[in-house]
Design a binder for these strands. Structure first.
Lengths: 412, 412
DNA sequence: CCTATTAGTTCAGGTTCCATACAAAGGAGC
DNA sequence: GCTCCTTTGTATGGAACCTGAACTAATAGG
């Protein structure tokens, strides 16, 4: 509602963003783009021409197909700029680069024990990690980690990706994901709580990071940003990420909802039983106390997730009961969420994705029972394995670029 | 994200909407509006001129104040078009007309026992009620009900409002509020559930109503539309309306969130205790089972709300306990909501507004405990008494008009 | 009476998108 | 091989919009 005045320039930005969004669905000729977006062929050409001239977009040779003049598909150039996603984890740093075409052009992870470090040290390390990644991208020597076991997550290397060779890639901007509760604007939030990285509490990471990071920086919660890695599933969904705790994000119309103060998405602290077990948040009976990893493992008397999965395969009754209890709690919590926000898809990530086959029956049954005839259409598992957070972070930057496509033009 | 292409016309619409939104905050000169909106004085003039010529806006005589040429404030004309809000209640019909200036120019209620009627009969009665109201507005003989006891709600009459006299008022559009769970687009939703008006279940009311209703019609849930009557409190808030059941709405950036399929806002069915009392929705332990009127009254052993309030004044322990239980449940449910959507204000309406002083302590204490350091800033009571639904409905139409100000121009 | 200040209007200029017409490039049919 | 048809891409004039600067209008103060 509280929008700003717009002139012809904003109009052009909007239409170009529309066009780029259409292009993200795959290469298409000017005529096809015109049909997709509702713009005129002439307008499409005039909007795209500068980007073709800048080398951001590539024009394929005509491919005769059917009757009429052959179409000349336009696509994102192999050397087009990319967005960086960086995730600070308890024991490491993960970074990736994603192009506007959605292709992963780099993915790497290094081990860092963050638990003892100060906020300044964390910022410094992450900044250098990101700068190195950006430098390798510019030099055309970044790795994609393609071909490795996805479950095992990315690892260090120098494998040049299938399309990553050749021209250096400029960085459009960086999104930093933190395992922390953040308050305030995405460009400079305050860390309100960070149970796993207490040194960050009370700091404003963007201020320490900005200098080192390539391009404009946004900072977000790990699970909230991770939600955006699943736009291929649906444009509107609830994302629930199970890790030590349980986080999440609401994605509405292709964008993540940050809430009035940036706190939105704490699905782990939806209440399932007001008199339930006490939770670290100060409440009782939060979803996290049933479906969080620590709660789940201790209820199942399992040492880790692998053990839990083995026990489930062996039909161990304690494991079975623990997972059913987690699924039911998750289902009850999600029913509350869906009754309030009415999103048609639930995406489970992190440990919850691994257990999806065991959780789904109870989750879906609670949803069906408690949603008054409009439960979500689907409960699906994330297929991003360990990379949801960084990919979603990069996606957050790309979404910004679509609303301000001028960022694609090379800086003067 | 999935937006449409825009040309210069859309640009003008946007800026004019911005301007009208600024004007809603009170009369202002062109220069003041230019300062408020960021547009140029020239642009402001060119945008407003046609509306002044059409008689939608009025230009006051210059009022010299301070140095410089005196400003000529522009305001909505006394005869400017209005939006209609119509509410179908179990035992009556309520209608109101609200101008873009937010002034109530008509408010009336008639008693109708809807319980036995067919969907067609309900549609017919509501259509005629709205048409009569529109006709009276056009003839300048509508009533505002001003001066009556607000708690008692509006009643039939012909009192011409303070500004309602003179020119007839055109109707911009109508919003119809139903005590029903609706699915689908606001212009033609399907009634999924209507416990209090079962005849409507399975129907598409807009199709029956449209012919009779003046102007474009939107249909919405009673509580969801009622939320919009409280934009004066904040632009972002959670609205909870207590009646027989408990409904609500999320207001984000001045607009109500309908959700992907139109179901959003069912705060009454957020779960407080998964093993709690069974609820009509099929679940257990929903907020409604503690804070809904029937639950509340039976727990307090009170015949009606008046009796409950008397008992509370007398410090009756059963009444006290029932209200504390309701407040705690409401607080727990709202904590779940706020943890997910992060809205900074809670507005209580309906019966909950009447009991706000008794409920607030428990509600706020649960919120403070369970919201991880970011509880809502305020929990306030609606001051709209019986009129929130119709006023919010009218507001929904006005919001639409701001996004398409061409509707203000008189039809050719 | 003259100047400073603010409000409102006028007009040329630049940008945008669009409708139309036109050129380019290939298939289909004869 | 030729013409006709279909489709793509480009060029051009037109209409709408916002802007900036210049201009007029109206008041206060000296």
């Amino acid at each position: 509602m509280a929008t700003s005045p717009v002139g012809p320039a904003a109009l052009r930005r909007h239409n170009l963003g529309l066009l780029l969004a259409a292009l993200r669905e795959g290469p298409a000729s000017r005529a096809a783009l015109a049909a997709r977006t509702g713009l005129t062929r002439a307008t499409v050409a005039s909007l795209l021409d500068p980007l073709v001239a800048d080398g951001v977009l590539d024009e394929a040779t005509a491919a005769p197909s059917g009757v009429g003049r052959p179409a000349r598909p336009v696509s994102f150039a192999p050397g087009a700029p990319v967005a960086l996603g960086i995730s600070v984890e308890i024991d490491g740093l993960v970074g990736c680069a994603v192009g506007l075409d959605g292709r992963l052009t780099a993915l790497r992870r290094i081990a860092v024990d963050h638990t003892g470090l100060t906020a300044a040290a964390i910022a410094d390390g992450a900044g250098r990690f990101a700068a190195a990644l950006a430098a390798d991208l510019a030099a055309g020597t970044a790795d994609t980690g393609a071909g490795r076991s996805p479950g095992a997550g990315p690892s260090r290397g120098r494998v040049v990706g299938p399309r990553g060779s050749g021209a250096g890639r400029r960085v459009l901007g960086t999104a930093l994901a933190l395992p922390a509760l953040l308050s305030g604007p995405a460009t400079d939030p305050l860390v309100v709580r960070a149970p796993n990285l207490p040194a960050l509490t009370g700091t404003r990471p963007a201020q320490a990071f900005t200098a080192a990071f390539p391009g404009p920086l946004v900072v977000g919660n790990e699970a909230t940003l991770g939600a955006l890695a699943h736009l291929d599933v649906a444009p509107d969904f609830v994302y629930v990420s199970g890790d030590v705790g349980i986080g999440g994000g609401l994605v509405v119309d292709g964008g993540v909802w940050r809430g009035a103060r940036g706190f939105a998405g704490e699905i782990g602290h939806v209440v399932v039983d007001r008199e339930g077990p006490p939770c670290g948040c100060g409440g009782r009976g939060c979803v996290e106390q049933y479906a969080g990893r620590t709660a789940l493992l201790s209820a199942a008397c399992a040492a880790d997730l692998d053990a839990l999965e083995l026990a489930l395969r062996d039909d161990d009754p304690r494991a079975r009961r623990a997972v059913d209890r987690a699924g039911a709690a998750l289902g009850v919590g999600l029913a509350s969420v869906v009754n309030v926000v009415d999103l048609p898809v639930v995406v489970l990530g992190g440990t919850l994705a691994r257990l999806v086959e065991h959780l789904r029956p109870t989750v879906e049954s609670e949803l069906a029972q408690r949603c008054m005839g409009h439960p979500p259409d689907r409960v699906v598992a994330s297929r991003r394995h360990g990379t949801a957070t960084v990919r979603g972070a990069a996606e957050a930057v790309l979404t910004e670029v679509l609303t301000d496509p001028d960022r694609l033009r090379p800086p003067a």
